[in-house]
């Protein structure tokens, strides 16, 4: 069993589908943070068999919960204070995503006007479909 030091203050993203931790690391921009970030891959899970975990030192404002909900709303978010889990955050599919993903449609206005935010709206909750606010292309 691999041991990573206990967090005193920070966030634990648990029950990440095995293999998805690096995607989340990139989409949340965790590489840009100054604080400590630990990625645990393929940890044992009774529920999932294998899972990934990300531990982040610091405050809640470091993580965009909307982006995380879009990536996988089954991820568990634990807020650690004074070394113990003080709060658990539920993730939901966000209604709107701003600058989390980019529109891939080469005919979209966002492809030529770089100052525009890339905004997507949830158009089908059951099928998890997001569409670009401008051209309606699927994410």
């Amino acid at each position: 069993m691999l041991n990573i030091g206990r967090l005193n203050e920070g966030i634990v993203l648990d029950h990440i589908e095995a293999g998805k931790a690096m995607t989340i690391y990139r989409l949340l921009g965790l590489g840009d943070l100054d604080c400590g970030v630990a990625i645990i891959k393929n940890a044992h899970s009774n529920k999932m068999g294998k899972k990934d975990i990300i531990k982040i030192e610091g405050g809640m404002d470091l993580v965009d919960l909307d982006a995380l909900g879009y990536i996988d709303c089954n991820i568990t978010v634990d807020i650690i204070r004074d070394g113990v889990v003080s709060e658990k955050k539920d993730l939901t599919l966000p209604e709107k995503l701003t600058n989390v993903i980019k529109c891939s449609n080469p005919r979209c206005i966002t492809s030529i006007e770089p100052q525009l935010d890339h905004i997507f709206h949830l158009t089908n909750k059951d099928k998890h479909i997001y569409r670009c606010r401008y051209c309606e292309e699927k994410a």
């Binding site: 449609n105 005919r107 979209c108 206005i109 492809s111 030529i112 006007e113 606010r133 401008y134 292309e137």
Partner: peptide
């Protein structure tokens, strides 16, 4: 009228 989709929305 604009060749890029969503330009009128902007």
């Amino acid at each position: 009228r604009h060749p890029k989709e969503g330009a009128p929305k902007v």
